Amino acid sequence: MTTKMINFLKKYEIWVFLTLAPLLNFVITFVKSKGIIEFFPYTNGRFYALFFLLVFIVKITKGNEGIKNLFRPMAVWKVHPKWYLFSLLFAFTIGLITLAIKSIYHNDISFLQFQLYIPTLKFTLFLLSWAFLGEVVWIGYAVRVLSKKINSFLATQIIGFVWSLWWLPSVYINVGVIEDLPVWPLFLNMMGAAGMCAIV
């Protein structure tokens, strides 16, 4: 890699990452859609590919210290218990509110009938690993870095938009996402989640 390219990468690091991240998942999803890779490597691989893309960029721009800084926010565990409670109840509460609004709109309370799903230990571990990687990449890195350049809320909405673009190919082939998920709720969800991070 030439000095000119390294300098460009150092200057526009966050924007290079935000451009390459959705493109990377597009390529991985395209390969999956052609049957070249199976469900399991696709579902897990896209998260790890995203993470290693970030590590590669940060290694070039900031060296080993930059890589350590990616994980430093994860070492802070002494936070108020209300935030742990918030993190445990947030998704469930949003889902319940959504079902309640849908039931009122359709005048049909059967939407509120749901079964509690208890995932397997294997799936739970994979889910936690994806959440960990997403936390390091999108929130720990992207929001933190972009917030130094622009208003925090605007930064989170840009991240949320790019985050949605990253998910978009998976939604298009309907693999590894909520089945038949429309595009607009995807953007609403990811931009909302990112915006919430600015407030938190």
Results as ranks from 00 to 15, higher is better:
His80Met: 06
Val79Pro: 00
Tyr42Leu: 11
Ser87Gln: 05
Leu88Glu: 06
Leu88Gln: 03
Leu88Trp: 07
His80Arg: 07
Ile57Ala: 07
Arg46Met: 13
Phe51Pro: 00
Phe40Lys: 08
Val31Ser: 07
Tyr48Ala: 09
Lys78Cys: 01
Lys34Tyr: 10
Thr29Asp: 12
Thr43Leu: 13
Leu70Ala: 06
His80Gly: 08
Asn64Trp: 04
Leu54Cys: 05
Glu65Ser: 03
Lys82Tyr: 12
Lys68Arg: 12
Asn64Phe: 04
Ile67Gln: 04
Arg72Gln: 10
Val76Gly: 00
Gly35Gln: 12
Phe47Asp: 10
Ala75Arg: 01
Leu23Gly: 09
Phe26Arg: 01
Tyr48Phe: 15
Ile57Thr: 03
Leu50Trp: 05
Phe52Cys: 06
Phe51Lys: 01
Phe39Val: 14
Val27Pro: 00
Met74Phe: 09
Arg72Tyr: 07
Ile60Tyr: 09
Lys68Phe: 05
Met74Gly: 02
Glu38Leu: 10
Lys62Val: 07
Phe51Cys: 03
Asn64Val: 02
Phe52Asn: 02
Leu54Trp: 04
Lys78Phe: 05
Phe86Arg: 00
Leu50Pro: 00
Lys59Ser: 12
Tyr48Thr: 03
His80Ala: 13
Leu85Arg: 00
Arg72Gly: 01
Met74Tyr: 03
Ile37Gln: 10
Phe40Gln: 13
Met74Arg: 07
Lys82Pro: 00
Gly35Trp: 10
His80Ile: 03
Phe40Glu: 15
Ile67Cys: 08
Glu65Cys: 01
Phe39His: 09
Phe71Asn: 07
Tyr48Leu: 12
Phe26Val: 14
Val58Met: 13
Thr61Cys: 15
Ile67Val: 14
Pro41Gln: 13
Ile36Lys: 01
Lys62Met: 10
Leu54Val: 04
Val76Met: 06
Lys59Gln: 09
Asn64Thr: 06
Asn25Ala: 08
Trp77Asn: 12
Tyr84Ile: 12
Ser33Pro: 01
Val31Pro: 00
Phe71Asp: 13
Leu24Gln: 06
Tyr42Val: 11
Asn64Glu: 12
Asn25Gln: 12
Lys34Met: 14
Trp77Thr: 11
Thr61Ala: 14
Gly35Phe: 07
Lys62Glu: 15
Val76Asp: 14
Asn69Glu: 14
Val76Pro: 00
Leu23Trp: 01
Ile28Ser: 06
Leu85Tyr: 03
Ala75Cys: 02
Val27Ser: 04
Phe52Asp: 05
Tyr42Ile: 08
Gly63Arg: 02
Asn44His: 02
Val79Trp: 01
Pro41Phe: 13
Lys68Asn: 04
Phe26Asn: 02
Glu38Lys: 02
Tyr84His: 12
